[in-house]
Design a protein around this nucleic acid. Structure first.
Lengths: 157, 157
DNA sequence: TCAATTTACTTCAAGCTTGAAATGTTCATG
DNA sequence: CATGAACATTTCAAGCTTGAAGTAAATTGA
């Protein structure tokens, strides 16, 4: 009897973890698709542009390209393209970082802040509507669970 | 005094719903990025291909293009392109649907099932590892919350 | 019956996204 | 100081994704 004993309990937990992941993905896509749809239909705008402006709006002093990339968890090359477009459209601008000629700091222009403010107000209302079925308790418990999950996900493996 | 009274409680709930959405998105991206990274690094494979094969693997009789599209919540045009590639590579095939010449049913080939089985085994192990910090109770509670959330998201508005 | 509508799918252009390679800059350290 | 490693960003090709428009087939209903 040198066989390793089977681990049915462990296997069931694996399956449940997989189910959890699929459900997480599903919920996330349901919301994201709806936001994307409304952003296009009502603002003629795209989610990536909105996301970049969103992190910039919260940083009055601007952000490095790398910071944007980290916060949104998208590739650096991706951010370059989106910021290029926002810049071309006069909604953002790159300013030099004194002391580091490799880096640049991106800020929203006045017009960028204006445009974003309009979209952001709508966006918050949409989320409120999309998640409208959830009361305060449900929201709080879900946030707690997601924090717990993300903490584990971000822990180095 | 004809002013509408401000609604601080309502507003706080709105903010919490927004926070919930951002945390949901964050957790989802953390997992998805890690899966995508491993799929590329260890299998030289892409997530969209894996996803399509994944729903096909669970449907021995095959699926209509539209079914794949609905289950994965991606556009119909997108599915066409991915199935085209899987077909070119001999991993899937389209079979005619008797009685409806517009439609076709997509199935995995024997080789497709083989290739998918390898990837799926790895995938399940990855998820188990990625979500490894969560014990049975945490997984169960999270699944329950996500089901609750998705139920509300899918409810017609 | 047969025109209008709906359905299933494909095609296409525009835009997003990635990962790898390239560029130029700064840092660490011998 | 030199020089190799690390860093911030950009460029690029390949592939994904969408939404809109197009095609062809099935269904509806006057």
């Amino acid at each position: 009897m040198t066989d390793i004993a089977p681990q049915p309990a462990e296997s069931a937990l694996s399956k449940d973890r997989l189910r959890l992941w699929l459900k997480l993905l599903k919920a996330s896509r349901l919301v994201e698709d709806e936001v994307r749809r409304r952003l296009r239909a009502e603002c003629d705008w795209t989610l990536p542009r909105f996301d970049v402006m969103s992190v910039l709006a919260r940083a009055p002093d601007g952000l490095r390209m790398g910071d944007i990339s980290k916060r949104l968890r998208v590739s650096a090359g991706n951010v370059t393209g989106i910021v290029d477009k926002l810049t071309d459209e006069g909604l953002a601008l790159r300013v030099a970082v004194p002391g580091d000629r490799r880096a640049s700091r991106v800020r929203l222009t006045a017009r960028g802040r204006e445009v974003f403010a309009e979209h952001a107000a709508l966006h918050e209302a949409w989320i409120d509507e999309i998640l409208g079925g959830l009361d305060e308790g449900a929201v709080a418990r879900m946030i707690q669970r997601l924090d717990h999950l993300s903490k584990h996900l971000e822990a180095p493996r």
